[in-house]
Amino acid sequence: MEQRLANTWRMTVNEKKFIETALLSDLRIDGRGPFDYRNLTIQFGRDDGSSEVQLGQTRVMGFVTSQLVQPYRDRPNEGTLAIYTEFSPMADPSFEMGRPGEFAVELGRIIDRGLRESRAVDTESLCVVAGKWVWSIRIDLHILDNGGNLVDAANIAALAAILTFRRPECTLGGENGQEVIIHPQEGHITGVLLDLDINWHIH
């Protein structure tokens, strides 16, 4: 991703000289030495499944939500995982409002691939009724400030949000034993899912 972005940038002569001078002086633009790490701060939100990460001057917020959906036909016993990134012009002047740009799309793909290949989320444990109902996990990443190294900051924000997330417990009930009953953390029944139709009964 960084290579693609580098291909779209054109540095001026003054910018090149500035970078060369900084390298010779063993300094980075933010004042760090060549081997100094960015300071990392992780804050877990009060709401379940949220986090805020600051890595140097970069800040990213992560939110995890879930809903019951029908599984893919070729993976009837697995839940789904989706990553969405939101870039604000306030975080970086190069970001535009509206449709996600190439940078946002590719960042989401990198985070998605890392979580899947590391098996940070066990998709088989998200199955409720094989072939009928599985949990779909969505991770929203909001870029608040872009001070460099967005990949690491977004990865950490996604993992931190997942660590605080707890999906609702489910049980099977009803006359035919195929009704999925969702239990909130308080222990009260909030809804009943009947086969392929969702009918909510609030108590």
Rank of each mutant, 00 (worst) to 15 (best):
D112Y: 14
S125Y: 05
V121N: 02
N155A: 02
E169Y: 04
N146R: 04
R166K: 11
L27Y: 00
G108C: 06
Q185Y: 03
I19M: 14
S25R: 11
R32Y: 06
I156C: 00
I181N: 03
E15A: 11
D36W: 10
D122A: 07
I139M: 06
E186F: 03
N7C: 10
Q3N: 08
L141W: 04
Y72C: 14
N176Q: 14
R28V: 08
Y72Q: 14
A22K: 12
I42W: 14
F95L: 13
A22M: 14
E2V: 05
F44G: 07
F165N: 03
E78P: 02
I83K: 07
F35N: 14
P76N: 09
V13S: 07
A82Q: 12
L24W: 01
I83W: 10
S94Q: 13
P89V: 10
N146G: 01
G45L: 13
G108I: 02
R38Y: 09
V105H: 02
I19S: 12
V69E: 08
G62K: 04
V180Y: 04
S88M: 15
N77F: 15
N39G: 12
L194K: 08
V121M: 01
R138M: 15
G114F: 13
T85D: 05
W135T: 00
T8E: 10
A91V: 11
M1Y: 05
L144R: 07
W9T: 05
T12C: 03
D30A: 02
I202L: 05
L141T: 01
E169K: 13
E52R: 14
W133G: 02
S50V: 09
K16I: 11
R119K: 15
L159I: 06
M11K: 06
G101Y: 06
S50C: 12
H188C: 04
T190F: 03
E78G: 00
W135D: 01
W200K: 07
R59F: 00
M97I: 11
P100D: 00
I139C: 06
E86T: 15
S51N: 05
R28L: 07
D152V: 14
A120V: 05
M97T: 10
R166H: 08
A161S: 09
G177V: 11
S25M: 10
D26F: 07
D30S: 03
T58W: 03
I111A: 00
S66C: 09
E175D: 09
G31D: 06
R116N: 11
S51G: 04
G177K: 12
P184A: 12
F63I: 07
G131W: 08
S125P: 04
K16E: 10
R73T: 12
I111R: 01
V53I: 14
G31C: 09
R46F: 04
D152A: 14
Q70G: 13
N146K: 04
L107H: 02
A153D: 00
E175T: 08
H142G: 02
N149D: 13
N146D: 12
R113Y: 04
V192W: 01
G174P: 06
K16R: 13
D47C: 09
E124M: 10
I111Y: 01
E175A: 09
M90V: 11
V121R: 01
D152M: 15
G173L: 11
N199F: 00
T80S: 14
M97F: 09
L172M: 12
Q70A: 15
L107E: 03
L55S: 01
G56W: 04
